[in-house]
Structure formats: structure tokens, C-alpha cells
Design a protein around this nucleic acid. Structure first.
Length: 432
RNA sequence: GGUGGGAUACCCAAGUGGCCAACGGGGGCUGACUGUAAAUCAGCUGGCAUCGCCUUCGAAAGUUCGAAUCUUUCUCCCACCA
């Protein structure tokens, strides 16, 4: 944050992106272009009402660019979301209905607005959150086909890797609708480029977006004789080759209502040693040298998980705020390092608070039903299965008795039942 | 509009009248070992219930003692040709 100097060291900026694993490819001349403040955008399709941590890579890259003296646009795809991006997708996708889409767009807009609220304005101003429906909706079909479609060669489009697999499969095809997605994305870039208030000339995105993004720079070159650039970020994979961004309980969302700050914190804390260096470099805003220092320390004794803790704390703070991070940290200490028997009543009150564990209120009931109520299991059969395997703990004790009843008598402070499934899944049942 | 192919659990995929709650693989979960890591090994992976029942193989109707498997109609997907 200290170098919000408007004078931009574009070469250094790009070198840093490279070092941090945030640079896969760029159009030639990008560095020179970034020597003066520019407007840079990245698009996000509203496939859900919240972004997830997969989107954090481009989001935080945008944040870096804004901090480096540029101005960024977070573009929510109210229009492109109507279509669905076919790039590298195996099959045609289901269309979202208009109401869902509107809901999703609103959700994401609110979310990113919050996420960028603390970012200072650069020479060109503060970050902007826009919706491409604003300039796409009113455009007529004929107008679009004549003015935009004319600049695209189908020969080139079908040659793209991003669609090739779809075209070559014999069990899946591609509709014209999805095929035209690239045109819409190019149109976005073109519109924001020629808009005098925006003059957006750079687009960033994941590497699978290369085709769609350069479609934009070409359109701008052909139609407006303008110079625009793109930068792609490498796809983030885990060391074991599996997808980044899933935890035991599924997708990790940025919305606290969908993924609690505690679960979010835990996700990062559980990063494997093999991945933590990669993640720190990409996600942390700490100086590069600080990160290397931290990693050196971490490697001396990986079991202390210094790197994971630092990563988890920084990101939880960034996404959910300082207080939520404190709570998540506290909760984690309590659940994993402390003995449930030593919990004070205050500890339990903490546990039951917002941003924490899944919790349920009820009168006395059977353990098996409690497990279902708290969603630790999905059926009674599964509950019995876990009980048999010794995977269920009640207030710190392994339970195998299928018939156990949870009552005030065996509750902590006559009120609390801390249930645990496996090593990491907790839930709280509160009487009253 | 025509011709051909297809729809099976989270995904891929076997099964073409009873031995099918449905092979196998992936994924996921759990246990052991650990550091809330990775790797490895083992178990589980439709539901209910004290081994018996219920629901499931795109949908509906039918044939049969008995269907994921046969018939009819319908829906959707794919390829090629118009």
C-alpha cells in the first residue's frame, strides 16, 4: 500500500506478477502500455449469487493492479451470464432464468463492492463495478451482427483450443448461442474501450480465457484501430492435481452466509505443504521478501504450519474483516487445541455465535436425530455407519452407542452438546 | 422434416427378462499412521427398519408370476442429411 505512487514501474510490476505465479501470457507490448495509468478489467459470470475462492485469484490480481496505480473494473456478466461461456467446457450448459440471474448479479455486485471498498483511488479513480447488461441489452440483433459479427472469422473461431474438444466429440455439440459467447465478451471490451469515461484498454483473466480476451483486442484493433492488451493468469491447481477451491463441505464461497468465516479460515489452514508456497505468493499482499522469509521459517518445522496460519489469517481478514478473523482463529484454537472438558460456558457461547459452527436448537433428542438436524450426516443409516466406525464424538468422547439420548443431563452446562464427525466437522446443539 | 445413435446413482461406465440396490473406475467420506498436511493401507458410499421392507436405471402406460432389461407413446440430447 505504501507505493501508491502514480509513477508506474511497469517492468517491475510484471516481474512481480511473474514471480508470484500470476503471469501466464500477455499480448506483446503490455509492459510499455502499463507505464502510464490504465483502466483494467476482468469479467465474472454470475453463475451463483456469490463468487467463490476460485475467483479470488483474478480479484486479488485486480487489487494489486489498482494498488499499483491503475484503475480496475470488476465486470459482472449480467449479459454474458445469459449465454454461458463454452471455453473448455465438456458439454452445453443449462441456461439460467432471468430472475435467478438478476439475483446473482446483485449478489456479486454487492460482494465485490465490499471487497474493494478499502482500496484507495488511484490517479484514474476508484475501482468500478459494472454490469455488461447495461450496454448489451439494448443492442439489436441486426445491428450486432452487422457491426460486430462481421469482424469475426468463423474459420478462426472453430480453430480455437477452447472449443475444439467440443467440436470433436461425438456425444456433445455446441449451440450457436454458446459459440457466440466470445463475440459478446469482445463486445464488452470494445464498449469499455471506446467509452470516454472508461477508456479501458487491458483485460485480465484466467488462462482459459485467452481466446475470448484476444477476440476483444482484435475487435478493438479492427474496428477502432485501438491498442488493447490482455494478461492471463495461470490456472491454479493443487499439487495432487485436483481442483483448487473445494473443501470437505464443498465449494468455498466468499459469502459468509454460504461459507462461514470459520470454514473459510479452516480451508486455508488446511492447505498442504506442497501448495502453501504457491498460495502465499499468489494471494498474500505481503512483500515478496517477507513471504520468502516466512517460507524459510515454515520449512524448518512444517508441522507448526506457520505458513498456513499466516495465509489463513490474511485472507480471512481481507474477505471477512478483522473481527471475523479473530473469531475464526479463536474458534479454531478452541476446537482443535483445547479439551472440550475444559471449555468454559463463555467458550460455548462463543462457539454458538455467528460466523462459527453450524448450530441447532432443540429439546432433548436422540443422538442420531441430532446428527441429522445439524447436518453432520444425511441419513440415519449414515449416522449408524459413522457411529460404528467410531467417527462420532460427543463433547470430546467417542460415541458408539446408537441409542444415546442428548438431554440436559449429559450436556455441558446443561445446555451444550458439541458434536464432531471425523476429524474436522463440528456442530453444536443447544438446548432451549 | 428425414436417417441413425443415445438417456443407468456425484461423474464416467457395465448390465439387454429373475443370480440387480444394480460390475468396474474416478471422486467423496470414515478409520489407522501423522502435523487439522502429503503419501500409504483398510472400510463405507439409495432409504427405512432389530437380514425384511420401501424407492430408484429419462417420463407415462402396458406385457409378464417377475422388467434397468420386452412393447407403445412421450420428453430431452447427439451426429449426419435435407
Amino acid at each position: 500500500m505504501e507505493n501508491s505512487s502514480p509513477l508506474l514501474h511497469a517492468d517491475a510490476l510484471i516481474a512481480e506478477f511473474q514471480a508470484r505465479g500470476l503471469f501466464k501470457d500477455a499480448t506483446p507490448g503490455l509492459a510499455a502500455h502499463l507505464a502510464t495509468p490504465r483502466t483494467i478489467y476482468c469479467g465474472f459470470d454470475p453463475t451463483a449469487d456469490s463468487l467463490h475462492i476460485g475467483s479470488l485469484v483474478p480479484l486479488l490480481a485486480l487489487r494489486r493492479l489498482q494498488l499499483a496505480g491503475h484503475r480496475v473494473i470488476i465486470l459482472v456478466g449480467g449479459a454474458t451470464g445469459m449465454i454461458g461461456d463454452p471455453s473448455f467446457k465438456a458439454a452445453e450448459r443449462k441456461l439460467l432464468d432471468a430472475a435467478t440471474l438478476a439475483h446473482n448479479v446483485a449478489g456479486i455486485q454487492a460482494q465485490v463492492t465490499k471487497l474493494f471498498a478499502d482500496v484507495p483511488a488511484g490517479p484514474l479513480g476508484k475501482p468500478l463495478v459494472l454490469n455488461n447488461a447495461d450496454w448489451t441489452q439494448g443492442v439489436g440483433v441486426l445491428e450486432f451482427l452487422r457491426d460486430i459479427g462481421k469482424h469475426f472469422s468463423v474459420n478462426q473461431m472453430i480453430a480455437r483450443d477452447s472449443v475444439k474438444s467440443r467440436l470433436e466429440r461425438d456425444d456433445a455439440g455446441m449451440s450457436f448461442t454458446e459459440f457466440s459467447y466470445a463475440l459478446l465478451q469482445a463486445f464488452d471490451f470494445h464498449e469499455m474501450f471506446r467509452n470516454e469515461d472508461l477508456k479501458c484498454s487491458v483485460q485480465i483473466g484466467a488462462s482459459d480465457q485467452w481466446g475470448n480476451m484476444t477476440a476483444g483486442t482484435e475487435l478493438i484493433r479492427k474496428k477502432l484501430r485501438g491498442e488493447a492488451h490482455v494478461l492471463t493468469l495461470p490456472l491454479l491447481l493443487k499439487a495432487d492435481g485436483t481442483k483448487f477451491g473445494k473443501s470437505e463441505s464443498g465449494t468455498v464461497w466468499l459469502d459468509a452466509a454460504k461459507t462461514s468465516p470459520y470454514a473459510f479460515y479452516q480451508f486455508w489452514l488446511n492447505t498442504s505443504d506442497a501448495d502453501v508456497e504457491d498460495y502465499l505468493k499468489r494471494f498474500s499482499f505481503a512483500d515478496y521478501s517477507k513471504i520468502e522469509q516466512l517460507l524459510a521459517q515454515h520449512n524448518q518445522n512444517p508441522s507448526h504450519r506457520l505458513a498456513q496460519q499466516s495465509l489463513a489469517a490474511e485472507l480471512t481478514k481481507l474477505v471477512h474483516g478483522h473481527e471475523a478473523n479473530e473469531r475464526a482463529w479463536n474458534l479454531s484454537i478452541n476446537l482443535f487445541d483445547n479439551n472440550v472438558h475444559a471449555f468454559s460456558e463463555e467458550d460455548f457461547i462463543q462457539l454458538s455465535q455467528e460466523g462459527g459452527l453450524p448450530a441447532a436448537k432443540s429439546g432433548s433428542l436422540a443422538l442420531i436425530d441430532a446428527l441429522i438436524l445439524t447436518e453432520l450426516v444425511t441419513s440415519k443409516r449414515e449416522a449408524r455407519d459413522f457411529l460404528k466406525q467410531g467417527a462420532i464424538q460427543h463433547n470430546g468422547v467417542v460415541v458408539t452407542d446408537e441409542a444415546l439420548e442428548l438431554t440436559p443431563a449429559n450436556a455441558k452446562y446443561e445446555k451444550y452438546h458439541l458434536l464432531k464427525r471425523g476429524k474436522k466437522q463440528f456442530a453444536l446443539l443447544v438446548h432451549g
